[in-house]
Design a protein around this nucleic acid. Structure first.
Lengths: 225, 225
DNA sequence: CCAAAAGTGTTCCGTCTACACCCATGG
DNA sequence: CCATGGGTGTAGACGGAACACTTTTGG
């Protein structure tokens, strides 16, 4: 009965990760020098092959874990990329995923171990194969998501100041936003809670730390920025 | 050198098509009874396997051509679906695509030949495997697209009346829209051109036929509905 | 003559945008 | 004492939503 399948061809299936981080008021992506042929030495996204005993989402999670040691990271599929000649070696179809992580959670040692670096999204070098296309599509999807769902907090520490949050949105949009209008919108969202804690790092006066309250959000999910 | 690849596993890769049509003021999808095991007899999207010598987009085009005999159809990727057990027979990862076609261009004979039917999107039966999930995601993406890019015309004849266009948007949104506001927005878009032709079919008075002018649109692509 | 769809503007309201000054503190 | 970032309200512009009547003609 299953012989039906075997008229057909199997194909290598990979995942590639576009890992976003936010640091120094800039949106960044984790990329590295490819350590294998073909394309050895070229800038590249981090990726891996999909195994037969795991879903594609699991393959993405596993690949991200290999690189960052992090689990339960916010990841979303960007899409499948399947030109015949996209990989110079073999025919490989790749499914791109983007991930949002807090740069501070990332173990610095791993940067060197895996030969990867945080690179500003606006200064992306030429990447291996079709990876630049993946990055652009990921940015587009992520930007959309950021304005309709509270996913930006994945890129920040648990405690953040409103200025940090604003800078994040500016980095994602690629343009400055008005401070008062921004804070007005924040006030309308009860799930962005002011804490008693004060950040003394970034200013002399000190800025209130805020926190995203997931439970409050789930009661009335109305996010708009 | 390429031996690097062969540590890894190959996987069956398929495409599934969500084919949208607009008829009788309803948004419809072309589905059929599965004619093969596993799942024989269940409602299902039309699909096919990706070959090693074609891109995934080409596989989608080819699959659509097999079913409809149509080329150069508007198609967009919905995403990859890759649970381990999504196909009861073998491990198959599938990439879903949605297509927009004009129902009138579709050869009725092919309906019977391939055992497929136009089914109202709001009355979708249970479909094989994860096909219902694919359909929902396709609807969501298509709805978004319809409001920001002039793709609705793919679902209509070359000549259409404003009422037809409005009914289409109502079907996609799932709610009625105001006739005057709708027509006001149309007037702002120079690439939706009134012709001298009159439709006498749908009303006694007769309604002006309009046409989408692709060239005018490309000069100043500002679509919003 | 009437049912059925085509066609046409104005007002209101809520939302978004622009905009400037005082505060607190570390150095 | 001053440089630096934190924090706050209002007015005007704009865009979207609501809304009703006249026209044409086939049957």
């Amino acid at each position: 009965m299953t012989s039906f399948y075997f008229e057909h061809q199997k194909i290598f299936l990979a995942v590639d990760c576009i890992i976003f981080g936010f640091d120094d008021n800039k949106l960044k992506i984790l990329i590295g020098r490819r350590q294998m042929d073909p394309g050895r030495g070229e800038w590249s996204l981090y990726g891996g092959f999909v195994r037969n005993d795991e879903s594609i989402d699991e393959a993405a999670d596993r690949t991200l874990y290999q690189l960052t040691g992090m689990r339960n990271v916010y990841m979303r599929q960007v899409g499948a990329f399947g030109s015949v000649k996209r990989d110079p070696g073999e025919r490989v179809v790749s499914i791109a995923y983007y991930a949002l992580i807090n740069v501070k959670d990332y173990d610095e040692h791993l940067l060197k171990e895996h030969q990867v670096e945080w690179v500003n999204v606006d200064e992306m070098p030429h990447l291996y194969s079709d990876h630049n296309v993946m990055v652009e599509k990921a940015r587009k999807l992520m930007r959309q998501k950021m304005h309709t769902e509270p996913v930006g907090f994945e890129l920040l520490p648990d405690l953040f100041t409103l200025t940090q949050l604003q800078r994040l949105y500016e980095a994602v949009k690629g343009e400055e936003v008005d401070k008062r209008n921004f804070r007005k919108r924040i006030k309308d969202m009860d799930f962005i809670e002011k804490t008693d804690l004060i950040d003394k790092e970034s200013s002399k006066r000190g800025a209130a730390f805020y926190r995203f309250n997931k439970k409050v959000y789930s009661l009335e999910p109305n996010f708009k920025l």
